[in-house]
């Protein structure tokens, strides 16, 4: 008799425990408008999409309005990069007062092998490069993922002299 009672108890317990789960999924089914967690991506790219400010999308070399960047071609970022995504090509130029000076020729960025580890930006003593939170970076051809970050004709931003800083 006791075993029969346990048998019935087990069946009832099974039904109750299963019904609890069913109720949860039914609640989701009915209130899908509230509980929905998906983002309809291509539709919301101009409206509700949220990309965090710090999101590591790609490395950029910011230029100011005079087409000047801060990179001195010191290659510290190139050394810091674990997978050789950065290639700094520099050239020797002669300044007006006759001194030889090494300046940036090409800042080549291989996005295809970049792992967004932030070590290049961490290593940069001039704060010349930074991460941008862009994320739609896919292209059809791998060769198109190799960027030259410095714009044509851009040059190094002159450091303000002590006098200028004071003023």
């Amino acid at each position: 008799m006791k075993s029969l009672f346990n048998y019935i108890k087990e069946v009832v317990y099974a039904f109750v425990s299963l019904a609890k789960g069913l109720l949860l999924t039914l609640r989701y089914f009915v209130t899908i408008r509230k509980v929905n967690i998906t983002e309809e991506y291509p539709n919301n790219r101009t409206t509700t999409i949220s990309v965090k400010e710090r999101f590591y999308g790609e490395v950029v070399l910011p230029h100011d309005e005079n087409n000047e960047h801060k990179c001195t071609a010191c290659t510290l970022c190139q050394i810091a990069c674990p997978n050789n995504s950065i290639q700094i090509i520099s050239k020797q130029i002669e300044t007006e007062d006759g001194k030889k000076k090494r300046v940036l020729d090409k800042w080549v960025y291989h996005l295809d092998s970049c792992t967004f580890c932030y070590q290049c930006i961490d290593a940069c003593p001039q704060d010349a490069i930074e991460m941008k939170n862009s994320f739609e970076l896919s292209v059809y051809d791998r060769t198109k993922l190799i960027y030259q970050l410095n714009r044509p004709g851009s040059k190094l931003k002159e450091k303000p002299t002590v006098k200028e800083q004071q003023s």
Binding site: T25, Y28, F29, I32, V35, N36, I37, T38
Partner: peptide, 13 residues
């Protein structure tokens, strides 16, 4: 659609 709605998503859309 049922699967989607029960799994907090829209299903095919």
């Amino acid at each position: 659609k049922v699967a989607g709605f029960m799994q907090l998503r829209w299903g095919p859309n």
